[in-house]
Design a protein around this nucleic acid. Structure first.
Lengths: 195, 195
DNA sequence: ACTTAAATTAAACAAATGATTAAATCATAT
DNA sequence: ATATGATTTAATCATTTGTTTAATTTAAGT
C-alpha cells in the first residue's frame, strides 16, 4: 500500500484539498502536511502551487467529461441507451466524488483565464450523431436541449446538495437513495420529454 | 446618483467582488478600492472581512430563495402557474445575476460552518401544498422531484455556463437566447413529465 | 569505497494581507 | 465660536503564505 512515490502522495493530497476548498483557500502547507511530506517538495516536484493545481484540474476535468464523451458520438448506441448510459455514469461517478462538479464549475467561473489554456485541448462535445438520431425518429427537441436536460437533472442535485439538504427538501441521510432512485426516473422523464 | 453613503458603497463593492471571485480570493484592499474608499473604513463599518461577507451572502441568499419561496406555498396558484412562475422568476433573476447561483452553491459547499449560522433562519421550503395539488390531480411524481426538476432545468445552464460555452454546446453570444427560449420549453417539458 | 545525482529537510525570505492605530477632518448641536 | 462625536486618512503591525536556499541524507552506478 505504501508503494506511492512522494510525487504521487503530493498529487493525491493536492487533489483532496483543492477539491474540498478550492484554489484560493488552499494553503500549500496544508497539502504538504496532508501528503506527509515537506513543503519544499511541492515546489521541487511541481514548480508552483498553480502548476500543481492545473495538474489536479486536468485530471478532474477528464473525469467529468469522460463520463459523457464516448457515449454521445457513438452511432451504434440507441438514444435510450445513451441517456441511460450518461445518467448512470454520472450518478455513479458523483456518488464517489460529490464535490467534483461544483469544484470544476466554480473554478471555471472564477478563473476563466487559467482554464482557457486547459480547456482548449478539450474535445468539442460532438452532437451531429445525436442530432441525426433525433431527426430519424422524428423528435422535435434539439440535441443541445436534450444533453442539457440530461445533465441538468443528473448533475444538479449534486451541485446544489448543500442547498437541497439544508432547506429540508431532501435529508442528508436520504441523499444517496434520492439520487440513486432518480437514475431510473430521469430516463423515463427524458423519454417523455423527447417524444 | 452620488447619494450613496460610504457604508453602502463598501457593501456594493463587496457584493461585486465577493460574487465574482469568492470569499478566499477576494482581498479587502480590492473592495476598498472598488468602493473608492479607504481600507480602514471596511473594518470601521463592518468589523471584519468575514462579517462583511456574511452581510453580502445574506442578501444573495435572500435573492436566490426569494425567487421560489412565495409561489410554492400558495394554494391559490395552480400547478402550471407555479412552474411557470418559478422558471420565469429564476431566468430573469439570473440573466441579471449570472454568477449568483454558482457563488452561493460553492461557498455553501466550501464553507459549511459559516453557512450553518446563516441558513438556520432560512425558512424550510414548504411542499405540503404542492404535494396536495399533485395528489388531487393524480400525478405520480413527488413534490421534491418536481421542484428539483424545475430548478435543475432552469438553474443548471447558468451554473454550468462556462462548461457549456467552452465545450461549444452553446455559443457565448447565443446564451441569452438559449435560456430565454428554454423558459417556455421547460414548462412544456415539466408538464409532460408530470402527467 | 567513492562519486554523482536525486530526494529530503529545516530555515529563511519577500510579498501579500487582514487588521489596528493615531492623527486629522467634517458635521452637528449647544 | 466651541465642543463633541462621527468619519476619514495614512501609516504601521503582525501574521500568513508561496517560494527559495543551502545543507543533509539517500540511492545508484562504477
Amino acid at each position: 500500500m505504501e508503494t506511492m512515490t512522494t510525487e504521487q502522495k503530493i498529487l493525491k493530497a493536492a487533489d483532496k484539498i483543492f477539491t474540498q476548498k478550492g484554489y484560493a483557500a488552499t494553503r500549500t502547507r496544508d497539502i504538504a502536511e496532508e501528503a506527509g511530506t515537506n513543503l519544499a517538495l511541492l515546489n521541487y516536484y511541481f514548480g508552483s502551487k498553480e502548476k500543481l493545481f492545473k495538474n489536479v484540474v486536468q485530471g478532474k476535468l477528464k473525469m467529468l467529461l469522460g463520463a459523457m464523451g464516448p457515449a454521445l458520438s457513438d452511432g451504434q448506441i440507441s438514444l435510450e441507451e445513451k441517456i441511460s448510459l450518461i445518467t448512470e455514469n454520472y450518478t455513479n461517478l458523483l456518488l464517489e466524488n460529490e464535490e467534483l462538479p461544483i469544484f470544476i464549475l466554480n473554478e471555471l467561473t472564477v478563473n476563466r483565464e487559467l482554464f482557457a489554456k486547459i480547456t482548449q485541448n478539450t474535445r468539442q462535445i460532438a452532437q451531429p450523431v445525436l442530432e441525426k438520431q433525433l431527426k430519424e425518429r422524428g423528435f422535435e427537441i434539439s440535441a443541445t436541449d436534450l444533453i442539457i436536460n440530461v445533465l441538468s437533472m443528473t448533475l444538479f442535485p449534486f451541485v446544489a446538495k448543500p442547498l437541497i439538504t439544508s432547506s429540508g427538501l431532501v435529508k442528508e441521510e436520504e441523499f444517496v437513495n434520492f439520487v440513486t432512485d432518480r437514475k431510473k426516473k430521469i430516463i423515463e422523464w427524458i423519454i417523455k420529454i423527447t417524444l
